[in-house]
Simulated scan of single mutants.
Amino acid sequence: MAKRIPIIPGSLIDHQVGTDDVLIGLANATNFLVGDAGQDIRDHATGGNDTFSGGVNSINNFVGDAGRDMLDHAVGGNDRFTDLAFTDSTFYGDAGGNMSGYARGGDDTGEAAPALGAVAPHITFYGDAGGNMSGHAEGGNDSFEAFRGSPAVKPQTTFYGDAGGSMSDRAHRSPSRSHPNFVYGRVIIGHPSGSCTRPRRSG
């Protein structure tokens, strides 16, 4: 049986499996939380299924599995990100850095909703990797939903289905989905190359 490993500052290796954790950001703070490994997930290691909640009036940076890279046959967990305060937040579904080899992203979900009195928050969601995907890396089936704002709250949401950087070699993406549900504000859908489509206004 694979050994379950609590959150560590180093790397998950061999056949280790991360634990399923609940991480909650502090209010009025800058939060940087990683679900499983502060560095890499490599070999045949697997991330846990973690749950993240943003802190009120905070800057939140959440990474589902590896703070740096996922490589070899690493597998990301199925993580959930929630920012009901709708503060400035960045979500990385699996790796804060790159995914390479035969690494595979988990099926991650995220949602954000505006808090009363929030001012023009920025939400960025990377479905799998904040950097590049190469080799035979595969993105997970990710989903992000942003709920409606108000005339006083004009949020900007950017959604990268798989990689914030480039996808090369035989790396491929899964059918990630974003569900902007804004009356006000704008949403930008990011492409694997890192470029974006023209902002689309709703309402």
Rank of each mutant, 00 (worst) to 15 (best):
R177Q: 11
G110N: 02
S143W: 12
A152G: 13
T157N: 11
V75F: 10
L12W: 09
I13W: 11
V153Q: 05
V34M: 01
D43I: 09
G165I: 08
S193R: 12
A171V: 02
V22A: 08
I5C: 04
D36K: 10
I24S: 02
T19I: 09
P114C: 06
S11L: 06
G139V: 06
I24D: 08
A74I: 03
I24F: 00
S53H: 15
T124S: 15
P121Y: 05
L23Q: 12
E145I: 12
P114F: 02
V153N: 08
G35E: 03
V153W: 00
G10H: 10
K3G: 14
T46A: 15
D83P: 08
G139A: 01
V75G: 08
T158I: 11
V34Q: 10
S166C: 13
Y92L: 12
S150E: 07
D50T: 04
I5E: 01
L84I: 09
V187S: 15
A2N: 12
D83L: 10
S178G: 13
D162L: 05
T46M: 14
G105K: 03
V17N: 12
Q156H: 15
S100F: 00
M167R: 03
F125Q: 08
A146C: 15
S193W: 10
T90E: 03
Y184I: 02
D14S: 10
D79I: 04
P114W: 06
A113D: 15
Y184T: 11
G67F: 09
G25L: 00
D107V: 06
L23K: 12
L116V: 14
A66V: 00
S53N: 13
A115E: 09
R198E: 01
A152H: 13
D40L: 07
I41R: 04
I41Y: 00
Y102F: 11
P9I: 07
C196D: 12
G203W: 08
N132P: 00
K154F: 09
D88C: 08
G64F: 08
L12T: 01
V17R: 12
N78D: 14
Q156C: 13
I24G: 00
D50G: 08
D69V: 11
K3T: 13
G165F: 06
D72C: 08
S100E: 00
S178W: 09
S202M: 12
S193I: 05
I123V: 13
P192H: 03
E111V: 08
F81D: 05
A120L: 11
S58H: 00
S143Q: 15
D169E: 05
S193H: 01
S53Q: 14
F62L: 07
G105S: 04
H44E: 05
R198L: 07
G135W: 03
I188C: 07
G55Q: 02
Y126W: 03
Q156N: 13
C196T: 15
I24C: 04
V34C: 05
R200T: 02
L71V: 04
Q16C: 05
R4E: 12
V183K: 10
